[in-house]
Amino acid sequence: AVCQRCQARFSPAERIVNSNGELYHEHCFVCAQCFRPFPEGLFYEFEGRKYCEHDFQML
């Protein structure tokens, strides 16, 4: 399997985020606008991209 964002493979010891069947490295699972991790894992999706609450409100 490969990361949805960076397309790199996962190492066996690595923590992986699964979002609706899409797999991400922990450091790749970030807001599409500000590139920060999601507070408490909370995000909003718009047109296939994931956003933090602040950036989602700015759309």
Rank of each mutant, 00 (worst) to 15 (best):
A1I: 14
A1H: 10
A1S: 12
A1C: 02
V2I: 13
C3K: 00
C3A: 02
C3V: 00
R5D: 14
Q7D: 02
Q7T: 15
R9I: 11
R9E: 10
R9V: 11
F10P: 05
S11I: 06
S11Q: 10
S11A: 15
P12Y: 09
P12K: 15
P12C: 15
A13P: 10
A13V: 04
A13F: 01
A13H: 13
A13R: 07
A13Q: 06
E14V: 07
E14F: 02
E14R: 02
I16P: 09
I16N: 07
V17H: 12
V17N: 08
V17A: 08
N18A: 06
S19D: 13
S19T: 10
S19V: 07
N20R: 08
N20E: 05
N20Y: 04
G21I: 00
E22C: 13
E22H: 14
E22G: 09
E22N: 13
L23V: 10
Y24H: 08
Y24T: 06
Y24M: 12
H25D: 00
H25L: 02
H25Y: 01
E26F: 05
H27Y: 12
H27P: 06
F29S: 08
F29W: 12
F29D: 04
V30M: 05
C31A: 01
A32Q: 14
A32E: 12
A32Y: 15
Q33S: 08
Q33M: 10
Q33H: 15
C34W: 00
C34P: 03
F35E: 15
F35K: 15
F35N: 15
R36S: 12
R36D: 09
P37R: 08
P37T: 08
P37I: 06
P37Y: 08
P37L: 04
E40C: 09
G41E: 02
L42W: 05
L42E: 14
F43G: 05
F43Y: 13
F43E: 03
F43N: 04
F46T: 04
F46E: 05
F46R: 05
F46S: 06
E47V: 08
E47C: 06
E47I: 05
E47L: 06
E47A: 08
G48D: 11
G48I: 01
R49H: 15
R49I: 09
R49T: 10
K50T: 11
K50G: 06
Y51P: 01
E53F: 10
E53S: 08
E53M: 05
E53Q: 07
H54C: 14
H54P: 13
D55T: 02
D55G: 02
F56K: 01
F56G: 05
Q57K: 12
Q57N: 14
M58F: 15
M58G: 15
L59M: 12
L59K: 14
L59N: 02
